[in-house]
């Protein structure tokens, strides 16, 4: 069985306990304004353009069967509507200015890569994390990957927005050691506005997953100007208090890497800030949530 993968990151430190390998799946039902992996949203391969490497040599123009590339004296335009992500221009570009994001991989191929760092997992209590995108968009692949990984005795985490039918979570729960569960916004209206979907099902699923005894880490992106208000931070603490199996709360401060990447796939990030979040701010948020809950709060 094949899945559409856009990255496998080894020696990942921020996606669960220990040293891990994170497998990023392509496709997401949410479209968060601050998305830090905009190339993960579409369920199809996409052309990724690193303009600073382009010398306007024209190799891509010659290679492209659909005539997507057009060059001027100082500019390189890509017609994304015509582009079929065939990859012809990627192989032709001598400067590696073009890449294709999204690669079909078999479960065993992914696991072969994951297995390479087994020694590091054993020593550090790490393992594999499936992230995205939303892994549940490729539910069958995800389920198979988790099952095969568990069979090999690896520790599994899955990072999810929670936006998927509950029965799917029920089916994978035995193969998941920790859910990394995103809490993006506590106010339903704002949730809809910032992510494009309603948060009712997300909340229901979270309580269900908690009830069935699975461990979760709450992953909370905090975006200055959007959801850094005290009432939302307070809600996060309250939520953790209502649940039994939350092992950690991760505060994930906004960074502009996603914005930079969105330009490379010809998109425009709705949240346009160029600023990294200052550490003092992050510490303040962590402190604020920390005094309102018994669950450890960490920077994610």
């Amino acid at each position: 069985m094949k899945g559409l993968i856009f990255a496998i990151e080894r020696c990942s430190l921020h996606d669960g306990p220990g040293l891990r390998t994170t497998v990023f799946l392509k496709g997401c039902p949410l479209h968060c304004h601050w998305c830090h992996n905009p190339e993960s949203q579409s369920s199809y391969p996409e052309l990724y353009f690193l303009h600073e490497k382009c010398t306007l040599c024209g190799a891509c123009v010659k290679a492209c069967p659909k005539k997507c590339h057009s060059l001027s004296v100082s500019n390189h335009d890509i017609n994304r509507v015509l582009c079929a992500a065939c990859g012809c221009c990627v192989s032709a570009c001598p400067n590696s200015a073009l890449e294709l994001k999204g690669n079909q991989m078999d479960v065993w191929e992914v696991l072969e890569e994951v297995e390479k760092d087994r020694d590091f997992y054993v020593e550090s209590g790490g393992g594999m994390t499936i992230s995205g995108g939303e892994p549940m968009m490729q539910y069958e692949f995800t389920a198979e990957l988790l099952a095969q990984s568990k069979k090999r005795g690896l520790h599994n985490c899955i990072e999810t927005s929670g936006f998927a039918p509950m029965e799917r979570y029920l089916k994978i729960r035995d193969d998941v050691d920790i859910f990394l569960y995103d809490i993006k916004e506590s106010d339903p209206k704002r949730h809809l506005k910032y992510t494009g979907v309603d948060n009712r099902q997300i909340m229901e699923n979270l309580f269900e997953i908690d009830k069935m005894g699975s461990k979760s880490i709450l992953r909370c992106p905090i975006i200055p100007g959007l959801n850094d208000r005290e009432s939302h931070l307070e809600e996060i603490a309250k939520l953790a208090g209502k649940l039994k199996n939350i092992v950690e709360i991760n505060v994930m401060p906004y960074h502009p890497m996603g914005k930079a990447k969105s330009g490379r796939i010809g998109k425009k990030q709705p949240h346009e800030s160029n600023d990294f979040t200052e550490n003092e701010k992050v510490e303040k948020w962590i402190g604020f949530i920390g005094v309102r809950t018994t669950v450890p709060v960490k920077k994610g």
């Binding site: 020696c11 220990g18 040293l19 020593e123 550090s124």
Partner: peptide, 17 residues
């Protein structure tokens, strides 16, 4: 700082290998 423990493990495994 933040990842001190993970880094110690990273090096330990490297040297063990």
């Amino acid at each position: 700082t933040a990842e001190r423990a993970k880094m110690e493990m990273l090096f330990k495994v490297y040297f063990k290998k």
